[in-house]
Design a protein around this nucleic acid. Structure first.
Length: 299
DNA sequence: TAGAATGATTGGGA
DNA sequence: TCCCAATCATTCTA
């Protein structure tokens, strides 16, 4: 397949693209599937499907290895915070194998240096062969670990929950709910996490920052714990208190009504947020205000 | 299956 | 840019 690709679109496919294609972790599986199909249908000569393996001594662009390793490290950094044991083990395995390859490389170079029987050109050729060999080993290792990490990412329950939670209406991860609820209950009087706290909660719960923000906004709103709602509840309590005072048996003397009106004026003055809101008691069409009430009181 | 619960989005105010 | 209230969309549950 790669041979076909290479020969048919040689002008467009660079060596870089070709190596990227053949080093893709799914390339092998795709090749095997196609080979199987070819053998079953016998409509395409198998020889055409033969993969052109890179020459053993062909030098490998170190940039490709570096890019692949950087991508793998980036993947690890994304998944590691989940604390998944298998990911941790895979990461350790990868680091050990890399160290092992580099140790072998260094030993081989050291042996080469100690060999005084080689000419300069022979030495250079041999040195190149050592680097190519070990670069290929690292590339194969990186590909294998990348494929394993992909499988782990798919199988991770927390990851499934996080990705699926992007869909509307899906439950957030239980860990995420747990840490946010815990924080909310501990800060019930002021449930407004700072940016740093939001980020920490997101990291702890495996959530995005916007999910944390939305969860707290919903939580405050649905438990009547937003600032305007709390203020409104306070005002309602004071109004009920005044009403009961006015209608009760211990009704105040008319000369004390001024005090009550003053109290009502204070309530209007301090309740701007919800009284003047779009659904408030004092909408734009209602022109009365605390000041007017104050004026009425003094009259 | 209807209603509740919940995550996400939107538009407006500060 | 944050917060809020309202609303939508989806899932859960009795």
């Amino acid at each position: 397949m790669a041979a076909i690709l290479r020969s048919s679109v040689k002008a467009e496919v660079s060596d870089f693209d070709f190596v990227r294609l053949t080093s893709n972790p799914y390339f092998g599986a795709l090749r095997d599937t196609l080979m199987s199909d070819v053998q079953q249908t016998a409509s395409i000569p198998v020889s055409l499907m033969k993969v052109e393996e890179p020459q053993q001594e062909t030098s490998l662009d170190p940039n490709i290895v570096a890019i692949q390793e950087a991508n793998l490290m980036s993947d690890f950094q994304q998944v590691m915070p989940s604390g998944n044991q298998k990911v941790v083990e895979l990461h350790e395995f990868y680091n050990k194998q890399c160290s092992s390859i580099e140790n072998e490389r260094n030993e081989a170079i050291q042996d080469l240096k100690e060999n005084n029987m080689l000419s300069v050109s022979q030495y250079q050729r041999e040195l190149n062969r050592i680097h190519v060999h070990h670069d290929q080993q690292r590339m194969h290792l990186t590909n294998r670990v990348t494929a394993s990490l992909e499988l782990l990412k798919i199988s991770m329950p927390s990851n499934r929950e996080v990705s699926s939670s992007k869909v509307k209406g899906r439950q957030l991860s239980s860990r995420g709910i747990e840490v946010m609820t815990d924080w909310y209950e501990k800060h019930i009087d002021h449930p407004y996490p700072t940016d740093e706290e939001k980020q920490a909660l997101a990291n702890l719960g495996g959530l995005s920052l916007s999910q944390v923000k939305a969860w707290f906004a919903n939580k405050r709103n649905r438990t009547n714990n937003t600032k305007p709602k709390k203020q409104k509840i306070q005002v309602e309590k004071r109004l009920i208190s005044i009403c009961s005072e006015l209608s009760g048996n211990n009704r105040p003397q008319p000369r004390l009504y001024g005090d009550i009106i003053k109290q009502l004026s204070d309530i209007v003055q301090t309740s701007h947020a919800f009284l003047r809101g779009p659904t408030g008691l004092l909408s734009d069409s209602y022109n009365s205000s605390g000041d007017e009430l104050e004026q009425f009181c003094s009259d």
